[in-house]
């Protein structure tokens, strides 16, 4: 027989999960089917989808390329300011994305780094590059956090043994550490892609959210909601939800493989 506590806790879990499910499910109920088809085939939606995939692909690859050595160095090496660097990397996870967006705008605007980059013809603010930069900084701390835990979890003695068998530090990293971290790298990659695709406020601040120019799927949702175009807004929401479901399904599959 189930205890009172067990029944109460399970009831809470079921009730709130059901509400969340209904909220997500309601996205699929409200628009008319024709309206949904028209919306997803519209030039704006296709453009936003392409831009989202394009920018998220680039930013995700960049995030992983930078996050792997960052997380590894935090996990394995001792160096000055390590604790401070770790805290700074954790900050964006704690404060709202709107603050990150504002901070990036201040950095890449004309005042600080932006002015310097502009001398070399690199424009960040209100450009597609700005979308990639915003997505990068939204996802980067999450990727580092997952990879940091992954590397910490791997016994350093695997690396010791490899080196004692003649492999250099980098060869060991490549042939032992990376293969042993593949689950964590994969999970981190999935989260990174999801964060990059879903990045909204930081993208809006840095890239401007200009119609058909710097318009990613979350921006499409926002712009069309502002104009009262519910079919487009909800369709953009549905596309984002589908992408998220795919990401979760892949993650689930990875989880099952790991359990085996």
């Amino acid at each position: 027989m189930k205890s009172k506590m067990e029944i109460s806790f399970i009831s809470i879990a079921i009730f709130f999960t059901l509400i969340l499910f209904l909220a997500v499910g309601s996205l699929f109920i409200i628009p008319s089917f024709q309206g949904f088809i028209d919306s997803i085939l519209s030039e704006e939606m296709i453009g936003a989808f392409k831009l989202t995939v394009y920018t998220a692909a680039i930013s995700s690859v960049l995030v992983m390329l930078v996050a792997i050595p960052t997380a590894y160095s935090l996990s394995r090496y001792s160096f000055p300011l390590k604790t401070i660097i770790k805290s700074i990397l954790d900050l964006p996870m704690a404060f709202p994305e709107i603050v990150l967006g504002l901070a990036l705008l201040m950095l890449f605007g004309n005042n600080v780094l932006g002015g310097f980059l502009e001398k070399f013809g690199i424009q960040i603010v209100f450009t597609v590059t700005g979308i990639i930069v915003a997505q990068f900084f939204v996802a980067f701390p999450f990727a580092v956090r997952i990879l940091y835990s992954t590397f910490n979890y791997i016994d350093t003695r695997y690396e010791f043994v490899s080196r004692s068998l003649g492999y250099s530090e980098f060869e060991t990293f490549y042939s032992v550490t990376l293969p042993l971290s593949k689950d964590g790298i994969f999970a981190s990659g999935v989260v990174t892609i999801a964060r990059c695709i879903g990045a909204f406020i930081a993208v809006l601040f840095l890239a401007g959210g200009t119609y058909m120019k710097t318009e990613t799927l979350p921006i499409t949702l926002y712009l069309n909601l502002s104009f009262g175009n519910f079919d487009m807004a909800l369709s953009a929401g549905i596309v984002l939800v589908i992408i998220s479901f795919i990401a979760i399904a892949v993650l689930e599959k990875y989880g099952k493989e790991k359990a085996l």
Binding site: Y158, F160, V161, S164, P179
Partner: peptide, 20 residues
């Protein structure tokens, strides 16, 4: 010298076999 240049191998209590 780096560990890889010493010609010294190590065996641990809990084997530390590469699981992959």
């Amino acid at each position: 010298l780096n560990p890889e240049d010493r010609g010294i191998s190590i065996v641990y209590q809990d084997y530390v076999l590469f699981p992959h």
